[in-house]
Each structure stands twice: as structure tokens, then as C-alpha cells.
Design a protein around this nucleic acid. Structure first.
Lengths: 233, 233
DNA sequence: CGTATATTTGACTGAAATCAACGCAGGTGG
DNA sequence: CCACCTGCGTTGATTTCAGTCAAATATACG
């Protein structure tokens, strides 16, 4: 709370003191950005929108998604703190995806009109952006590989395992809070709500995980979970 | 032939005159690279390899793939002329994918030991690399969206349609040569050889495409092909 | 407490995988 | 020249995993 409050009060000059940017190399960048907060469910970028922006996520989780011709939502990626949203270039045509907050989010927004100049002034920033984009490409390729061949069980187990890695040690040692609803998991993993639910139950029945309630998952057998995730991928 | 021969004779100084780099911004970059040719089937990068490189494809087609735990090959992307292979950074750990030539390939290779300096000297080059990486990210996300929800028919139709766009007007107006075997298409689309074959036959029977033989495809009804590709995606 | 929403569970269906032949070049060697 | 082999593609029969349709809890929320 204190954290969020202090951010909302930030002037542009003080931005660098707000949320932790991913890398020291980004510190000078922060001085050129403005602070922005989003509530859960708020849309930052809408597909087809001509207005573009580039921002760095300081706190919270976002989804990149779009609605396919059949009217079904497909989530093509999640964005965690430190990740960049949008593109730094003006020439790229309209946005192809929606970007929506899945939780309360704090952003450091860089207006596209000045970002090219900012990058020119701070080569390390451009380097960092390139580096992160390459990392994200690797991530998406891993998702691709999973969607191409993995069974429903492996997709669900893999998602839980990866989420656990991202959220190290909450209150309880092996209990994590999933950031997505069953429906959102289905949209991300290319499955249906029912199938996601069934695989969760299957993992619970096998003693691999526990489901204390809500979106919480207790990981009882990490090795078995990893094995289930790898079973075809 | 003349083209290929002249490239092989290039000294480093003359490299810029060889294959067409994607953008005028890359011209100065070419002077810092060396020419290399690969035969169909040759491996440029092997997964797990610590040695990294960065290269720009001038001619030919490559695949980015890896073998999953079940022993099945998954193709996570194709690389066309103008695309970059590998990464410009030394810190990224071992390669995660194989990169293999699907046809005769000409490359402009940049040694990683000097590329950071080259990028520092030519900011436009780094900008171009970032821009292309972002574009590739968009491509992969489209594939992801397709793999998440599209039917076998839509995947195959989409692949044919996209290939046709990439290879504008060969000899015959609406005849294209697929760059992949049925098995490679299956690995790319997350299907089996049999299913790919069946969908091709289905499109042929419906009068959408013709199959003159070999890997050739005659596109008889582009609108119907596009419609089949969009049917769920 | 009651209503709305999310999740689980069950029965059935269907699309693609699997298993299994078959056809068709293109090359090799008798 | 022809028989044989090999790799690639097509076709058919059957199985299976996940989707669809439907209903029963469970949880969140006013």
C-alpha cells in the first residue's frame, strides 16, 4: 500500500525512485517516463488502436491476448514485472493485441514521441530492450513447442511449475496463488475450462498438488509435477 | 548461379555488394561480416552449443527446431532472407534450438566478439535488429494463436496462404513450391504427416488448390483458401 | 442470506492420432 | 533393361484425448 501510494505521488523527476526497474541500465530511462497505475481488468492497449506506447511493468501482471475469428479469446503471453509492453517504434502499424491488467499494475510509461531520442541518449537502454525482447522470443517459442505437442496434463502441470518459479516463496513454502482463473488458464493453454479443471483434479488425486481453495495450489511433489510437465513437450 | 558464384568470391571488403541485406540501414553492417554458404540439411547452430553467433540470411530458408522429451521434432519457426539468426549477446547461455538449412543458404555472419562494437558504431544497425526481433515476436505470437485453437484444416490452409505471400509469383502465376516436406509441415503445424496429407487432399477435392506433383501447389481459389485458414484462429 | 459467478463432475461426441497398407518415383545393381 | 530397395506421400480402419453439452456444487459478493 505504501508502495503504491508513493508511486501515485511521484513527479516525473522522482520516477526513478518508484518501482524497481528490471536492471540498473534502465535507471536513466525511468527519468524519462511517467508513472501510471491500472486496476485489475483495465485495458492498456486495444487491438487495432493506432496509438502506441512503450512501458515497463513495475508491479503486477498483464496478459497479451486477442479475439480470434471464432470469437474465442487467445492469450499469447503474460507480462511480469520488468517486462516491456508495446513497441518503441511509431512505424509498426496498429496494435495487433489487447494488453489487459490481470491484477493491480504499476507502469513506467515512455511516450513514443520521445523514446527514440531517449534510446539514442542511453544506448544501454536500447541494449536492454533488445535483450529482453530476445528473451521474450525464447519464452514464446517454448510456449509454441508446448502447444504443438504437449498433452492437456503436461500443459497444466507446466503452467503451475512455471508460475511457482516466478513467484518464489509466498507465505507458505510450497503454496502459490495462481494469477489466472480457470478460464484464463484455458485461453492461455489452448484448452477448455473443463479440461483444465479435470487435469487439476487429476494432479490432486495423484497426490502431486493440493487445492486448498480459491486459486491456491500447494505443490506436494515438485518432481512429479516437473515430470508431468515434461511428459511430451 | 552467377549470384552464388560472385558471393563465394567476395572478400570481406566487398561483402556489402553480395546478397541484398534487408534494409539500407544494414549496409554498413555487412562490411563487418563474413560470407558463408550452407547446403540443404547443414546445421548452423546446434541446441546446447555454447558457441553463439549472429548472422543475417541473404538467400535460402532455415528452420529453428528442437527435439522434445518424447523424441519428436518441433519446428518453432522458419527464417527467410533478411531474418537474423542467433543472438548478438554473449551472456545468453547455450543455444536452446537447432538451426538447420532447408535449402541452399547464403549468410552474412557477424562474430559475436566484434558485434557489440559494430552495434555501438552503427546505432541504426541495432535499431534494425530490435525492429526485426519485435516483428518476429509478432510472427511467433500469430503461430501461437493458430496452434492454440485452429483446426488441422485451418493450419494447413494458413501455411499454404502464408507461403504464397512469401514467394510472390514464381514461374506460373498461382503455382508455388512448398519449402517443406509433409513431415516438416507436420512438425511446424503440430500435426502428423497423415493429417497434413488428408487436409491437402481435402482442399484439393474442394477445388481450392491443385497438386500438380512434388511439393508444388496451385492456388485455384485464393478466397476460399483464406477463408479456410481463418475458420477458427 | 440470497444471488451471481466460478469450478467441478458426468455423459457423450468428434477431430486428430495411431496403426497399417498401398502407390509412386528415383536410384542401384544384377 | 528390369527387379529391388528406399523414402515420401496417400488412403483406410480404429482408438483416444480433449471438446461439447448439461448439471451439480462451491465460492464470492452485495
Amino acid at each position: 500500500m505504501v508502495f503504491g501510494k508513493s508511486c501515485n505521488q511521484c513527479s516525473v523527476r522522482e520516477t526513478a525512485l518508484c518501482g524497481v526497474l528490471a536492471d540498473a541500465a534502465l535507471a536513466p530511462m525511468a527519468a524519462h517516463g511517467t508513472q501510471r497505475s491500472l486496476a485489475r481488468g483495465e485495458t492498456l492497449i486495444r487491438a487495432g488502436d493506432p496509438a502506441r506506447l512503450c512501458a515497463n511493468i513495475q508491479r503486477g501482471l498483464m496478459k497479451i491476448s486477442h479475439i480470434n475469428p471464432a470469437g474465442h479469446e487467445v492469450i499469447v503471453g503474460l507480462l511480469w514485472p520488468g517486462d516491456f509492453v508495446g513497441t518503441p517504434f511509431l512505424d509498426g502499424g496498429p496494435a495487433t493485441h489487447d494488453v489487459v491488467a490481470l491484477s493491480a499494475v504499476s507502469l513506467c510509461v515512455f511516450p513514443q514521441t520521445t523514446i527514440e531520442r531517449t534510446m539514442a541518449d542511453h544506448p544501454a537502454m536500447e541494449r536492454q530492450l533488445l535483450s529482453r525482447t530476445l528473451a521474450e522470443l525464447g519464452q514464446v517459442r517454448r510456449s509454441l513447442s508446448r502447444l504443438a505437442r504437449a498433452t492437456a496434463l503436461a500443459r497444466v502441470a507446466g503452467f503451475i511449475a512455471e508460475t511457482a518459479q516466478r513467484r518464489p516463496a509466498a507465505a507458505e513454502p510450497h503454496v502459490i496463488e495462481l494469477p489466472l482463473s480457470r478460464g484464463e488458464m484455458a485461453d492461455l493453454l489452448g484448452l477448455t475450462i473443463e479440461t483444465v479443471s479435470r487435469q487439476m483434479t487429476r494432479l490432486k488425486t495423484a497426490g502431486v498438488i493440493g487445492l486448498p481453495g480459491g486459486r491456491q495450489v500447494m505443490i506436494q511433489d515438485p518432481d512429479a509435477l516437473a515430470e508431468a510437465a515434461d511428459e511430451l513437450m
